[in-house]
């Protein structure tokens, strides 16, 4: 073949088709079709759904990233398929391919395009975190959140999430006398501030359809926001390996109308009044070691050498 190539008359190389253009023309409809399918067909069903503002924001983010990634992937696959078909080794052709040389134009294009994509995603992601509609994108922001909902603080429903092996309980705000329950019921179209903490090991509060995921650390108030916008049921799971029954640490929450929520909260407050009276004063963290009544009981029971700590002083405690 080499001999034939050497013997070929001048101008044979000009007959080589424009592979770049051909790849582009194959890739373009595939990329456009993939993007349209991703945005309009699969997009509305992408996780975690659009039951709440944070979830809606996450779904939008995933749609945007998918639409940006699909053309890149389509290009890689198109190029690979084109190369396999067009540049495959023909029967009887035992020669090497032409030597590959650097191509500054292609390298510059590749670096520029990928840099633009990555930087655009960086900017987009940062904007989405700060976007008031997302208010931190449903993630735990620590005790002093930077990104807050675009409403007055008095309009935000405060709910304390208390993780413990192996159950979440929820403490409702002052207007409901700080009752605690193992049911999570939320009013629709109301911003909720989840004050997530733990009273034993590290857990993670993951209200999937609300788009909320915040670590539950002992002695820490980890704040996350979301505004439920649709009525229905959502799943709450622990997303941090927390011991023997971690896999069973899940339950279901409900988004109801505001009138239904008030009715439920008032009724539950009454039903739980007897145990609410035993609860420690409300605090942003649920730290048993600072509960005076508990320390007194421990001392009374002869269980502690140091007030508030569990068991004798030589036993290990949470660092």
């Amino acid at each position: 073949m080499a001999a034939e190539a050497e013997a070929a008359p001048q101008g044979t190389e000009a007959a080589e088709p424009n592979h770049g253009l051909r790849i582009f023309l194959i890739w373009l409809p595939i990329a456009v079709a993939a993007d349209l399918l991703l945005w309009f067909v699969y997009g509305p069903h992408m996780p975690p759904g659009d039951m709440a503002s944070a979830a809606n924001g996450q779904q939008f983010d995933i749609k945007v990233m998918s639409v940006m990634a699909a053309p890149v992937m389509a290009f890689v696959l198109t190029y690979a398929a084109y190369a396999l078909i067009v540049w495959r080794q023909r029967p009887g052709d035992d020669t090497d391919g032409p030597a590959i040389h650097g191509n500054t134009k292609i390298q510059a294009t590749w670096i520029t395009v990928t840099s633009v994509i990555v930087l655009a995603l960086f900017g987009f992601g940062t904007y989405e975190l700060a976007n008031p509609h997302s208010a931190g994108a449903g993630s735990g922001e620590g005790p002093s959140p930077i990104w807050k909902p675009p409403v007055a603080a008095s309009k935000i429903l405060q709910i304390q999430v208390i993780a413990q092996q192996w159950k979440f309980t929820y403490r409702y705000p002052k207007q409901y006398d700080y009752f605690e329950t193992n049911q999570l019921v939320l009013p629709a179209d109301t911003w909720v501030q989840f004050n997530v903490t733990s009273l034993d090991v590290i857990h993670s509060f993951w209200a999937y359809q609300l788009g909320v995921k915040a670590d539950a650390n002992p002695g820490v108030n980890n704040i996350a926001y979301s505004e439920p916008t649709q009525l229905g049921t959502f799943v709450v799971r622990c997303a941090e390996l927390c011991g023997l029954w971690h896999g069973a640490m899940f339950d279901y929450g409900h988004v109801v109308t505001q009138a239904q929520f008030r009715l439920w909260a008032t009724r539950t407050e009454t039903q739980l009044a007897d145990v609410t009276a035993l609860l420690p004063p409300y605090a942003t963290t649920y730290d048993p070691t600072v509960i005076k009544q508990m320390s007194a009981a421990m001392v009374k029971g002869g269980l502690t050498g140091a007030p508030g700590l569990f068991y004798p002083p030589q036993d290990p405690v949470q660092p």
Binding site: I162, Q164, T169, E180, L199, V275, L278, Y286, G301
Partner: peptide, 13 residues
């Protein structure tokens, strides 16, 4: 067994 206070009094119900 002897007593140990509940970490979360909610479970006293």
């Amino acid at each position: 067994d002897g007593c140990t206070p509940l970490r979360n009094p909610f479970w006293g119900k």
